[in-house]
């Protein structure tokens, strides 16, 4: 009963915080642009009747491919970073208490810094530094995603049950063997399914790299929006939707086979 009570208080508190946030907006009719409502209808109309002419479809396929390549390239780098730094940050390769605290602290901090800044901010920093290059997009995805994946990998490695690890230790395995035969096989399925989820996110992130001037689906969406061609906007959106659905289905199938 006591426990239940505490949870209710917290839920109430969260609702109160939400109500507080509502006071930051002055709720008047002039929140809308003067033509806002009709624009809304136009956007809805585009959703029902997307532009399916061949030019637009071709453009959509090419820009989808570009978006996909940036996402894949970024993810492949992020995976390498996450794997190396994640294993170091989990502290399973270290010996001795002081060494462990130092190494784990340093690498966890590094991962925290990498993921604290949003990928678009990274992209903007890279574009400001090296100009418009696909590498700006790839690195901008690789750094924050490496940070997130690394942190999750480290947590997963730490959550591996102790019994099989102790059994390996009792057989005299080295730390390296512990990692290869104990930790990684145990965590692999979870790691893979999380990676697939992040890949889906990477596609979205790569689509918005257009905002700093890099090509891809987002760029086309932005152009069409500026021309007020909402039907084209939705065509590109449906391509984005399609890629996300495909990756989602793929990861579902994989998870079913690996986790079960």
């Amino acid at each position: 009963m006591q426990h239940f009570h505490k949870k209710n208080i917290l839920t109430g508190l969260l609702i109160l915080v939400f109500v507080w946030s509502l006071f930051s907006v002055q709720w008047r009719a002039d929140l809308f642009h003067s033509g806002g409502q009709s624009t809304f209808l136009h956007i809805l109309l585009g959703l029902i009747q997307p532009d399916l002419s061949t030019d637009i479809l071709q453009l959509a396929i090419v820009s989808s491919w570009r978006t996909l390549t940036y996402a894949v390239a970024g993810m492949s780098l992020a995976l390498i970073v996450a794997f190396v730094v994640g294993i170091l940050a989990s502290g399973i390769l270290t010996k001795g208490k002081t060494q462990r605290t130092a190494i784990v602290g340093f690498f966890r901090g590094l991962l925290g810094f990498m993921r604290a800044i949003h990928e678009l901010v990274w992209a903007w920093l890279f574009v400001a530094a090296v100009g418009l290059s696909p590498f700006a997009a790839v690195f901008a995805i690789a750094i924050p995603y490496g940070g997130i994946l690394g942190r999750i990998f480290a947590d997963m490695l730490n959550d591996v049950p102790a019994a099989p690890i102790n059994a390996l230790k009792a057989c005299g395995s080295s730390r390296w063997q512990l990692l290869m035969y104990g930790y990684i096989p145990h965590a692999a399925a979870d790691m893979l399914s999380y990676t697939m989820y992040r890949f889906e996110c990477a596609i979205r992130s790569s689509a918005i790299m257009s905002f700093v001037g890099l090509g891809g689906l987002g760029y086309q969406i932005q152009l069409s929006l500026e021309d007020l061609k909402y039907d084209e906007v939705w065509t590109f959106m449906f391509f984005l939707l399609g890629m996300v659905i495909v990756v989602d289905l793929w990861s579902q199938q994989l998870r079913k086979r690996l986790v079960a």
């Binding site: 929140l31 642009h33 806002g36 932005q222």
Partner: peptide, 18 residues
């Protein structure tokens, strides 16, 4: 499937900045 930024680009056509 649609990123926040693209939603925002569209919403900003309907609402005033804020």
């Amino acid at each position: 499937a649609v990123p926040e930024l693209i939603w925002a680009m569209m919403i900003i056509f309907i609402f005033k900045p804020g």
